[in-house]
Simulated scan of single mutants.
Amino acid sequence: MQKLSPHKLDSMVHDKKIPIRLAFIKPDGTPNVISLWYEIENEKIFCATQKTAKIVSYLKNNPKCGFEIAADKPPYKGVRGDGAVKIIEEKGAEILETLMKKYLGEKESTLSKFLRDNSKSEVAIEITPNKLFNYDYSKRMKDA
């Protein structure tokens, strides 16, 4: 397995504030995708969401996932892969705070206040990647 490091990812994806697209399977077998804020720590990907969010029960039911972190504008490049998820209740508020600094900055806003007010019911989603695939279509899209 390739290592997933923030530095490697930063060289692939220049917009640091893009979300991760997390694919999962619902209990009825239907695949689905959700976009979440993410942070990479010790070769794992962390997200946060409310404990009552449906994604939490779906991932507890089936911890296998797929993911992609990539910009939406040409030239397309990023990383995608699959992995296993663990829900960590006691780390939710801590991860949320890290994500808010990354995506919202230090400035107090309506959104940051709302998120902090509800942080006690946040859980962390820890993704341990199994396989990673980096892609960069810059050469073939140089005139796009």
Rank of each mutant, 00 (worst) to 15 (best):
Lys26Tyr: 02
Asn118Leu: 14
Ile69Gly: 11
Gly92Leu: 11
Leu4Tyr: 12
Gln50Arg: 03
Ala23Met: 15
Lys139Gly: 15
Tyr135Asn: 07
Leu22Val: 09
Pro31Tyr: 11
Arg80Gly: 09
Thr30Cys: 05
Glu43Asn: 15
Ala93Arg: 06
Ile127Ser: 06
Pro27Tyr: 03
Ser119Tyr: 06
Pro6Trp: 00
Thr98Gly: 02
Lys86Val: 06
Lys131Tyr: 08
Lys142Leu: 10
Glu97Gln: 11
Pro63Leu: 05
Ala71Arg: 13
Val79Ala: 12
Phe67Ser: 01
Ile55Met: 10
Met100Asn: 03
Lys44Val: 06
Gly78Asp: 04
Trp37Ser: 02
Arg116His: 15
Asp136Phe: 04
Lys51Glu: 10
Cys65Arg: 07
Ser35Arg: 14
Lys60His: 12
Asn130Thr: 08
Glu122Ile: 00
Leu59Glu: 10
Pro6Gly: 00
Tyr38Ser: 01
Ala53Trp: 04
Met100Gly: 05
Gly105Ser: 05
Met1His: 15
Glu90Gly: 04
Ile55Asn: 04
Asn61Thr: 13
Pro74Trp: 01
Tyr135Ile: 14
Ala70Glu: 12
Ser119Asp: 08
Ser11Phe: 05
Asp10Glu: 11
Lys17Trp: 01
Asp117Cys: 08
Ile125His: 07
Asn61Ser: 14
Val33His: 07
Leu115Trp: 03
Thr30Gly: 00
Cys47Met: 12
Glu106Lys: 11
Thr49Ser: 15
Leu132Val: 14
Ala53Phe: 04
